[in-house]
């Protein structure tokens, strides 16, 4: 018998092993749900799959009685727009400030401590300030996301720039580069794939801040809906919404990874073999 650490799953069994916890969790839910519903058919805590399906159908296909909107899609569009703005602005800030601070010692001396300080402020603590300053509209939610993830991305980008071998920077100068052309041709292309990585790692935090902001003040959005129907113990809406958010987050992560692989073919090869 070989040691446990040396037993490796085949391709097929790896897939099965990966699915197993999902199936078990679903099974456990179904059993618990059935047991509760057998006791009390109007139980709301663990609704059956059929109830959730009906609720999802109501949200996604049937226009809302009051507003005439298809709520699921309105919520999704609103949340994704906020998330997109937040991530986009954070990425732009991360690139511009991160590269600037990473490559120019003068900017680093001036800004690095300030950014480090900013990143230590808990974003949720300033949410009231954002609501007061920017009102309850879209801006405050986007700013919360930016405030939450931009400092992390900036510092990550700065570190990536500083990790570039000094030889590369020196050589670019001997090839006649100015500061601007050095950044455009040598630094920027090499940190872009790292920016995608940083964005992927920030997705979780971005969703967290989005849902928190929506829970407190919004008129539509995935987070808003979940917290709204909580008043009616509507688990049959909340659970499908959580699953839908998970699917969206997974799709964004997968999309960023695919983009990185396609746009930067040199990236994977370079990081595994180095340039010896």
């Amino acid at each position: 018998m070989r040691r446990l650490i040396n037993l490796r799953p085949e391709r097929g069994s790896r897939l099965l092993l990966g699915l197993l916890p999902f199936v078990l969790a679903l099974l456990a839910y179904l059993i618990a749900s059935a047991a509760r519903l057998a006791d009390n058919p109007s139980d709301k805590l663990l609704p059956s799959l059929a109830t959730m399906g009906t609720a999802l159908y109501q949200m996604a296909v049937v226009p809302d009685a009051r507003s005439g909107n298809l709520l699921l899609w309105v919520d999704t569009a609103a949340s994704l727009a906020r998330l997109g703005w937040g991530l986009g602005i954070s990425a732009a800030l991360g690139l511009i400030v991160g590269i600037g601070v990473g490559i120019t010692p003068l900017l680093r001396a001036g800004l690095a401590p300030f950014i480090a300080g900013l990143s230590l402020i808990p974003p949720m603590a300033i949410l009231p300030i954002l609501f007061i300053v920017f009102g309850l509209g879209e801006v405050s939610k986007v700013v919360l996301i930016v405030f939450g993830i931009a400092p992390v991305i900036i510092r990550d980008m700065q570190q990536r720039v500083e990790e570039l071998p000094g030889e590369q920077i020196i050589r670019a100068q001997t090839l006649g580069a100015s500061t601007v052309s050095l950044v455009l041709r040598v630094v920027l292309p090499q940190v872009l794939p790292r920016l995608l990585d940083a964005l992927r790692l920030s997705l979780g935090a971005a969703w967290l801040f989005l849902i928190a902001a929506e829970a407190i003040a919004a008129t539509e959005g995935l987070g808003y809906r979940i917290f709204l129907v909580r008043r009616y113990l509507a688990m049959d809406v909340i659970l499908p919404y959580v699953a839908w958010i998970t699917v969206l987050a997974f799709a964004m992560d997968w999309g960023l990874r695919a983009l990185s692989r396609r746009a930067f073919p040199w990236f994977g090869a370079g990081s595994t073999r180095g340039s010896t």
Partner: peptide, 30 residues
């Protein structure tokens, strides 16, 4: 240098082209 002398994100041709581009295009390097 002994190592790290070429740019990993550019092909062989683009590496040498880069030297000419940086030299002839002051701002964009292109």
């Amino acid at each position: 240098f002994q190592r790290y002398s070429v740019y990993p994100h550019l092909t062989v041709l683009d590496n040498v082209l880069l030297a000419l581009e940086l030299h002839r295009s002051r701002w964009l390097g292109r």
